[in-house]
Structure formats: structure tokens, C-alpha cells
């Protein structure tokens, strides 16, 4: 029962997190380009941009961990 619930959560996470990663990555790329064009605006140093990077880092880590888990442990079973 517990395993079923865990699987459902993993399934949902693997469905959502890659999208969040893509969105935050694209947003960061855009902010990076704007910052190069107009450094005075300092988009990269802005607090919300740092939150975007943090979300990206968390999503990437969790997605990667889940994929590794599925490939290395689940699939072997």
C-alpha cells in the first residue's frame, strides 16, 4: 500500500518537476541575456532571480535523484 502511494507521488513528481525545471531554466536564460544587455538593471543579482535558481536547483536535484532511483533500483527489480 505504502509502495503504491510512493509510486504515485514519484509519478506525479516526474511529471511536474521537469516542466518546472524547463520554465525556470528558460526564465534564467532570458534574465541572463537582459542583464548582459543592460547591466545597470542587475536582474541577475535580484532576490527573485536567486529564488528562481534555487527552485531550478531543487527541481533538478529531485528529478535526477528520482531518475537514478528508477533506473538503478526500480527497474532492476
Amino acid at each position: 500500500m505504502k509502495s503504491k502511494r510512493a509510486n504515485t507521488i514519484i509519478k506525479y513528481l516526474l511529471k511536474i518537476l521537469p516542466h518546472v525545471s524547463i520554465i525556470t531554466s528558460l526564465a534564467y536564460v532570458v534574465l541572463f541575456i537582459i542583464d548582459r544587455v543592460n547591466p545597470a538593471m542587475n536582474f541577475i543579482g535580484f532576490a527573485m532571480t536567486k529564488v528562481v535558481i534555487l527552485v531550478l536547483a531543487i527541481c533538478s536535484t529531485v528529478t535526477s535523484a528520482l531518475i537514478i532511483y528508477l533506473l538503478e533500483f526500480k527497474n532492476r527489480k
Binding site: 516542466h19 524547463i22 520554465i23 526564465a27 532570458v30 536582474f43 535580484f46 527573485m48
Partner: peptide, 17 residues
């Protein structure tokens, strides 16, 4: 959808910035 959501996120960041 991804592009629209990225745009929305950028709008929110711009709003605060």
C-alpha cells in the same frame, strides 16, 4: 504551455523588479 508559463514567471519577476 512551457513558453507561456516562462513568460508568466518573467512577468512576475519584472513586476517585483
Amino acid at each position: 504551455t512551457e513558453i507561456v508559463l516562462t513568460g508568466c514567471l518573467l512577468c512576475v519577476i519584472s513586476l517585483f523588479h
